[in-house]
Structure formats: C-alpha cells, structure tokens
C-alpha cells in the first residue's frame, strides 16, 4: 500500500515537469513557425526569419537584449549592495524605527510602477538623466532595492551575528569583518539577491517605457510592441530571449554554489 503523500508526489512530478518545460517548447515553436492556425497542433511553415531580427542588419531584438542584460546586471549589483546594508540596518533597529524601516522597504514593492515612473521621469529629466539608459537604471534600482532590502531584512532578522562578534573580539576591524567573515559566509544570500535585483530589472516594462521616454529599448518593450502589432512570431522569439538568459544565470549560480550548503539539489 502506498501512502497518500507518495501518490501525490507521483502525480505532481509530471505537472512540475510540464510547467518547467512547456514555456521553452511552445515559445520555441512559435518563434520559428507561422501559418499556425486552429486546429493545427504544429505550425504550417517553418522559417528562421524572426531570428534574423536578433542579429541581422536593422535588428531590434539583439541590441535590446544587450541593453536589457547590461541594465539587469548593473541593477542587480547595485540592489545587492544597497539591500545588504539597508536590510541589516533595519534588522538591527528596534521599535518604531524597525516598523518604519520595514514599511519603507515595502513601498517600492507595493507601489504600482506607473506611480513610480512618472514622478521619477520628471525628476530624472530635471537632473539631466531623462530618457537615457542611466535614468532607466536609476528607475530600475528603486523597486529592485525594495525587494533586496526586504530579502536581507528577512535574512538578518533570523541570523545571529556570533561569528562577527567573535572576529571583533579577536581585534578585526569593521572592514575586515565584512571582507573575511560576513561576505564569505553570506555567499549564497548575496548571489540570490543579485539575481533577484536583476530579475526585477529584466522584466520591467512601465518604468523603462516612462523613464526612458521610449528611447531606451529593452527586450520587454520590443516584445510588447510586436504583440501590439500582431507580430506573434517575433514576439515569441523575443519572449524566448527573455526566458533563456535568466535560466542560464540560474544554472550558473547553482554551479558556483556547488560547495555551499544548498536548498536546491
């Protein structure tokens, strides 16, 4: 006799496999197929035409991919550093300071993007950063910092500072403690925060559109434009490009963390 959990496990595994594999399979087909009308299960014609829009002359998707990647990386790094400091500071606070700190960290996460975007754009324009990639970076950093601050707030709330205290007792300076104790110990958390910040930037639409004045072209913006224009094949190719790099980053992170105790296999 098999137990109920075992049966559930056996039933859920194929579903999880489907949820993981389906996006790549379907977007892959849609990106090389056209004449794909009901009730056909497969496209009527196949062509690599949409992939020429990734590299060829006048290609829009390739440059947008690069812009998105640069923004995501820069945003992830900035948000990781900021979040670690802000999260630890708020976690160390007590009483009403802590409540205000946590509330503030929630603000950029809970605010709808348009609420952020318009005011931010006006400010950035005033500062001479409007409609530029730097302005878009600043705009992306705002919600990304909210997420990473919340993330580190959670981590530092449960983390005991015993090792740092020990190092300090042994005479280590503040910088040494950070470099030799905290950072090596928080390897995994820092990388996860980097990825979290990068993903927030990677998926942004409204902030990029408004803060970039439409001139800064990232991958999600190209995909939206193609969808609105009914160019489903190009939209699928763009969507596929949206899926692959984060998946690869995810895989790389797992490799890099081989030696660290991991929740994931």
């Amino acid at each position: 006799m098999t137990s109920v959990p075992a049966m559930l496990r056996r039933g859920l595994l194929p579903l999880l496999l489907l949820s993981a594999a389906m996006p790549l399979a379907i977007l892959g087909l849609a990106s090389i197929g056209s004449d794909w009308f009901f009730p056909a299960l497969l496209p009527g014609t196949f062509s690599l035409a949409s992939w020429r829009n990734v590299v060829g002359t006048g290609a829009l998707l390739g440059p947008a991919l690069l812009a998105s990647a640069a923004l995501a990386l820069a945003t992830g790094l900035a948000a990781m550093v900021f979040g670690a400091f802000a999260g630890s500071a708020i976690a160390a606070a007590t009483g009403w300071r802590r409540v205000i700190g946590a509330g503030a960290a929630f603000l950029p996460v809970a605010a709808p993007p348009v609420a952020l975007a318009t005011g931010l754009h006006a400010t950035l324009l005033g500062a001479g950063l409007g409609s530029s990639i730097v302005g878009v970076f600043v705009a992306h950093v705002v919600p990304a910092c909210g997420y990473t601050t919340l993330y580190f707030l959670g981590i530092f709330t449960v983390r005991e500072g015993g090792h740092e205290d020990a190092a300090r007792t042994l005479g280590a300076g503040r910088f040494d403690v950070l470099r030799r104790v905290t950072i090596p110990m928080m390897h995994r958390e820092l990388l996860e925060a980097l990825l979290l910040g990068a993903i927030v930037s990677w998926g942004q639409v409204a902030l990029t559109l408004v803060a970039g004045g439409g001139s800064v072209r990232t991958l999600p913006l190209e995909v939206i434009d193609y969808l609105v224009a009914g160019q489903d094949q190009l939209a699928a190719t763009g969507s596929l490009l949206l899926v692959i790099p984060p998946l690869a980053a995810f895989g790389l992170m797992r490799l890099a963390l081989r030696n660290v105790e991991l929740v994931l296999p």
């Binding site: 754009h121 324009l125 005033g126 409007g130």
Partner: peptide
Amino acid sequence: VNLLVTEREAGARGS
C-alpha cells in the same frame, strides 16, 4: 504628448 510635456516641465533637452 506625455513625453514632450514632461520634458518641458523639467526644462530638459529635447529627445
């Protein structure tokens, strides 16, 4: 329209 109005409000250079 949104963009041009915001640019004018901020006194920014045209894009």
